[in-house]
Structure formats: structure tokens, C-alpha cells
Simulated assay, not measured.
Amino acid sequence: MSLSIELQTVGGPEVFATVNTVVPDPTPEEVQVRQTTIGVNYVDIYHRKGLYPLPQFAAVLGVEGAGVVVAVGTNVANFHVGQRVAYAATPPGSYAETRNIPQGCLIGVPDDLSNRLVGSSMLRGLTAQMILRRVHSVSAKEFVLVHAGAGGLGQLVSRWATQLGAIVIATVGSERKIAIAKNAGAKAVFLHSDPNWAKKVIEFTGGQGVHLACDGIGGNMLKQTIACIRPFGTLANLGQPAGAVPPLHVEEIGSIKLSQPSVIAYIKNIADYRLAATDLFSALRSGLINAIGAEYALTDAALAHTELEAGRTTGSTILLPT
């Protein structure tokens, strides 16, 4: 039997139910994993609320985790029982003690990295790699603006960009988060509730604007951020917890590059997935810190969602099976 957290219907965290199920044997192309670390991400909230519809109910949420292989399908050649593995952006289902996963979704965890570190870093880490390597190849001394700089993705992007020699500017939602963003590498931090934050960003860059801006807020923040980008710079929208981005006219975008990159689309290509994971593991070995801001028992998934959605967490959020 495997304990899992099922979503009975769309709605608030109260729609979760704790159930025990029998996990079937893996199909020929699947690997059965007993999980040790389960990542909680904002995309899980979008699934729970129905913004990203799921194909059926009851459903188990979660697209990130790490664990140990306990069984393999007959066509699986690259994984073996006892091996440590991690994954991101699989079909949802990680809020469970044990699950079956298509072998193409799995990455072997190197001996010198822990399941806790890798399992809490995969989705955000691969997203950060996509932003800093594929969306805009960040160079030393470039200016990078990171919204929600105290959040899980914001901290990871800030730390990695700093590791690459960039100069990070962050915005945060409260005074208490300023120190967190600075600890993650930001050289300047502004409250995004400050009506003059965009002007202050431009002033900090000597009037030139930033080379790259990462908007994980959405709503009206994206339109305000356009003014902070230097000509031919890049603006990436990575989430919309503040609501959908209002329509833009092409003349409002001007000469900048605007994208809404999807890490799920990025790593559908198995070769890109493995190369990005290798790059992430190398960065983790080189001192990239992924701060875990909150951890909960698997049975407290509803509380984890409540705190994350309310903006009361910083860093990554994980669930731990019993």
C-alpha cells in the first residue's frame, strides 16, 4: 500500500484527501520509485484550482521529486533496483509514497549529491537553467532583474546568475524578505509595492536598464517591467500568481525580446533534459545553494499549499513521505 494525496475536485486546499492505494507493477517502460523528497511548486496550485486542467479526478498532484528505484519494467535498461533517481515535469503524481514513472522522465542522482538537494531543485533548477542558458545566455557583469527574489525560483535564479558573474537586482513583497533576497545574491532589492521601483532599477543600472528580467508575478507587473529592459534585452514571464497578464500592443514591447518560456516544453526533448540536468548538477557541486524554506509531512500537503499560495514561504517547499 502507498499513501497518496488525491485531489477530488478543483478548489482550495480542503479538496485534498489522504488515501491508501495499491501501486500496480510498472509497465514495460516504467520505473517504480519509493519517494524520499517531493517538491511543491506553484504549478501544483494551478492544477488544484483548475487553471491548468487535469484530465481526470481523483488525481494526484506534483511534478517533482526524488527517491529510490524499487522495481523496473521489462524494457528498462538504464535504471536498476536500489538506484537513486530524480525527475521534474513528469505527468502529475508525486504526492505519493510510491509511484510509477516513465523511464524517459528520470535522471540518475550522482553519488555526491543528496536526494533532498536534488529532489527539491529539479523543477526550479531546470527552469533557472533554461532562463540563464537558453532564454538569455547570461554573461559576467550583465544586469539581471528577478521579481519575487525571496521565493524558491527567485533565490535560485539570483544565486546562479551571481555564480555566473551577473549583477542581480531583486524585487520582493515585504520588508522581511529584503534580507533573504540579498542573501541570495541581489545587490539591490526593492519592494514591488513601491510605485518608484522601476525608476530605481533603471537608476541602479546607470540609466541603461537590465539585460534580462525574470517575472514570476504576472498581472500588471510585466507591463511595468518592460520599462526596465535595455534595448534588445530580454523579458521572461514565468508565472502569474498575481493574475493573467493584460493584453499588450506590439508597439508597447518595442525592441526588447519578450517570451513566456515553459520548462515542461523545454525538457520534453530528452537530450535537452539530460544536458540541462547535467548543467544543474554541476552548478550544485560548484556551490549553488537551493534554500529549502519549508518542509511538511506528505499528509500536510494542504497546509503546504495554503502557506505557499499566501506568500508566507521563502525558498523551496518540500513534502516528506513518512
Rank of each mutant, 00 (worst) to 15 (best):
T98W: 05
W197G: 00
P13M: 10
I202C: 06
F57K: 12
P231S: 14
K49W: 04
L132Q: 03
A59L: 08
D112R: 06
G119I: 08
G125V: 10
S94R: 09
V245M: 08
S174M: 01
G216R: 00
L145P: 04
Q224W: 00
P26E: 09
F204Y: 15
I292V: 15
G218H: 02
L106T: 12
N78F: 05
A302Y: 12
G209M: 13
H147F: 01
I256Q: 00
V118Y: 08
G149S: 08
A161G: 07
G311W: 00
C228L: 03
S158M: 00
P261Q: 05
E307T: 15
A140Y: 01
L319H: 10
L156P: 01
Y296D: 03
S286G: 13
P53G: 12
A184N: 07
I5C: 06
V70M: 09
C214K: 00
F79V: 04
T205D: 00
A188V: 12
I131L: 15
S137N: 13
G82H: 02
G151H: 00
L284N: 02
Q83C: 03
K177W: 04
E97K: 04
H249R: 14
A271V: 15
V245H: 07
V135P: 01
V15P: 05
G11F: 11
A301W: 03
V189Y: 01
L212W: 04
Q83R: 01
N78S: 14
A166G: 07
D112G: 07
I167T: 14
V76C: 06
V72P: 05
F190D: 00
G67Q: 05
A58C: 06
P261H: 05
R48A: 03
V135R: 04
R274W: 09
A227M: 08
G11H: 12
P55A: 09
I167M: 03
